[in-house]
């Protein structure tokens, strides 16, 4: 499913890209990201009063000998970052319009895989989660074997069905518990036909020193309603069927879509998250860069 987008993605161009988050990472292992922990780093972080048990190697002997103060020098510890990819696999993500090269889920999977590759190459941890019942979640992992598992899971993901409010609550609760401070959550969804509480639930993944980037994935046909003449439109996650004259309904549709997107954008931004829209007609590499920029500007 992801093959067409995969072929279009210039993986070599992604090599110099790194995950950079304004918020401090709270990793368990040493990594390239600034950690809230002070310790055996190389970048000086400041002084603090000596307490019993401190490593005497960091005791500032100059201050002790000159001023009689017992202070220890602290350094920022480089640590790894936790990146969680959350993909919407409800039925609406299976849509592929006349001008798209694939379904929205395929596009999201390629962009997600690229982000995982970037993160894993930087020594970060990556986990995979799905909104819906048609994906196999992956726990935190590092290294290229994890990338292989992620790619496999993405390839086997199928869009279908819908997600209930209860199921979404369970998912968000679980993600909240397992996301360490400084973790980055990237949600790929079209934000269509999700439960009414979805904005509130997903918005909760932002804050508490966690970064959330919401990527609205839409098909070009969904953006401008290109149909001509009378059409009967059927929603994929409900029984809704609409008979309409596309040219006449286009302006109203575009206004309604803009309003819908603004609601989600405003909701996420209000919670400190980043929101961006991606069209499946775009270059996946460009979308990856925009997501990385979003990650850089996200969080505290």
């Amino acid at each position: 499913m992801t093959e067409r987008f995969d072929q279009e993605l210039d993986w070599g161009a992604l090599a110099p890209l790194r995950l950079r988050a304004r918020s401090a990472a709270e990793g368990l292992w040493a990594g390239p990201h600034r950690s809230l922990r002070r310790g055996a780093g190389v970048e000086f972080a400041g002084y603090r009063a000596y307490t019993q048990g401190d490593d005497l190697r960091f005791l500032d002997r100059h201050a002790l000998m000159r001023h009689g103060l017992r202070v220890v020098r602290e350094f920022e510890t480089d640590t790894d970052r936790s990146v969680r990819l959350v993909l919407d696999v409800t039925a609406s993500m299976s849509f592929a319009g006349s001008r798209a090269r694939g379904a929205k889920l395929a596009f999201a999977a390629v962009v997600g895989a690229a982000l995982a590759w970037i993160a894993l190459r930087g020594g970060d941890r990556v986990a995979l989660e799905f909104i819906g019942d048609h994906g196999l979640p992956l726990p935190w992992g590092t290294g290229m074997p994890t990338f292989e598992r992620i790619v496999s899971a993405l390839e086997h993901a199928r869009a279908g069905g819908s997600v209930s409010p209860e199921r979404l609550t369970q998912l968000v609760t679980r993600l909240g518990r397992s996301s360490p401070a400084g973790s980055i959550t990237v949600v790929f969804s079209d934000f269509l036909d999700l439960p009414a509480s979805a904005l509130e639930e997903l918005g909760a993944l932002s804050g508490r020193q966690r970064a959330l980037v919401a990527v609205e994935v839409l098909d070009p046909d969904e953006i401008d309603l290109p149909f001509k003449g009378p059409v009967r439109l059927r929603a994929l996650e409900s029984d809704l069927v609409v008979d309409t004259d596309a040219p006449r309904a286009r302006a109203d549709y575009e206004a309604a879509l803009a309003e819908h997107t603004a609601k989600w954008r405003d909701g996420f931004v209000a919670r400190g998250a980043r929101f961006l829209r991606a069209s499946t007609g775009e270059d996946p590499g460009a979308v990856v860069r925009r997501v990385l920029e979003g990650i850089s500007g996200a969080g505290a």
Partner: peptide, 22 residues
């Protein structure tokens, strides 16, 4: 009319009478 899948169908305004006439 020809039935097409369209996820954001809920955002589309129905114009049924015109459709049938045309």
């Amino acid at each position: 009319a020809a039935e097409l899948p369209f996820p954001p169908a809920a955002l589309v305004k129905a114009t049924q009478t015109s459709t049938r006439r045309e």
